[in-house]
């Protein structure tokens, strides 16, 4: 049974449950249309396509591996940050998780993309709902001159909105995968239905990553995307580029 405290008066005037409100906020923050610039990046996929290494035929397999490797890394980072939402000790762990996020990304353009998206998401979140912990995270980034990475910010913001870890991780993984699929639609003959089918078929992989993330330790982490990283490193050399990374 819902408790009295679970009911809020939303801005539409409709009574809703706290859980439903949190879900609405999550849907908004994980929407690919969120104006933080996620559609401007391919993270090296543009190079792979330009070099003829990646086509529509191999896209499903590529994306599955992408979720298992890069997705697992981002999920780990987001989960670490989510745990800091209500942690007593915040400053050093927040710096550490963002340091780790940067150190796990060898390709400059992809690392920069992650930092820009993180900064914009934190800035946007603060303008929507200036929670003290988010302000603290933002102040630390400025005073310590560190970059705040997208997955870390996503986890921290979700924690502030009382969004469960599992839902946060699923939304993050779906958003990053969808962003990549949308990028592929711009550079490959990939139709809208096919794009949605690809994403749909990845659901079990997304689910598996979500389920295993809480038990992953820093020592366990070994995300391997050597081909994509190297492609991201070559991206600045492309003659014509649709994407920033």
């Amino acid at each position: 049974m819902p408790r009295v405290g679970d009911f809020l008066l939303g801005y539409t005037g409709v009574m809703m449950l706290n859980a439903a409100l949190a879900q609405l906020k999550l849907l908004q923050l994980a929407d690919s249309a969120l104006p933080i610039g996620s559609t401007a990046h391919s993270y090296g996929v543009e190079s792979l396509v330009a070099e003829g290494q990646l086509g529509v035929a191999g896209l499903g397999q590529f994306l599955r591996a992408f979720v298992q490797e890069s997705g697992q890394l981002e999920a780990y980072l987001a989960y670490q940050a989510w745990q800091l939402g209500a942690a007593a000790e915040f400053a050093q762990p927040w710096l550490d998780v963002n340091d780790h996020a940067a150190a796990f990304k060898p390709a400059r353009e992809s690392r920069h993309a992650s930092a820009v998206l993180g900064r914009r998401l934190l800035s946007l979140a603060l303008q929507l709902e200036p929670l003290p912990r988010w302000q603290q995270a933002n102040s630390l980034a400025q005073t310590q001159q560190i970059e705040t990475h997208h997955s870390c910010v996503f986890g921290l913001v979700a924690a502030g909105l009382a969004i469960e870890a599992e839902a946060m991780l699923a939304a993050l993984l779906q958003q990053m995968t969808l962003s990549l699929i949308l990028a592929c639609q711009k550079i490959l003959p990939l139709g809208q239905v096919q794009a949605q089918q690809l994403l749909w078929q990845l659901n079990p992989t997304l689910q598996a990553v979500v389920e295993q993330t809480p038990s992953i330790t820093f020592a366990d982490l070994a995300p391997c995307s050597i081909g994509l990283d190297a492609a991201s490193m070559r991206h600045p050399l492309l003659g014509t580029r649709l994407f920033i990374s």
Partner: peptide, 24 residues
């Protein structure tokens, strides 16, 4: 401070290493 954490786990029976995410 961590500068680079370059790690990889390769298991050919579980990963298709000719995937362009890996070796292509």
């Amino acid at each position: 401070r961590p500068l680079l954490l370059d790690r990889m786990r390769l298991q050919p029976s579980l990963q298709q290493l000719n995937n362009p995410l890996y070796f292509g």
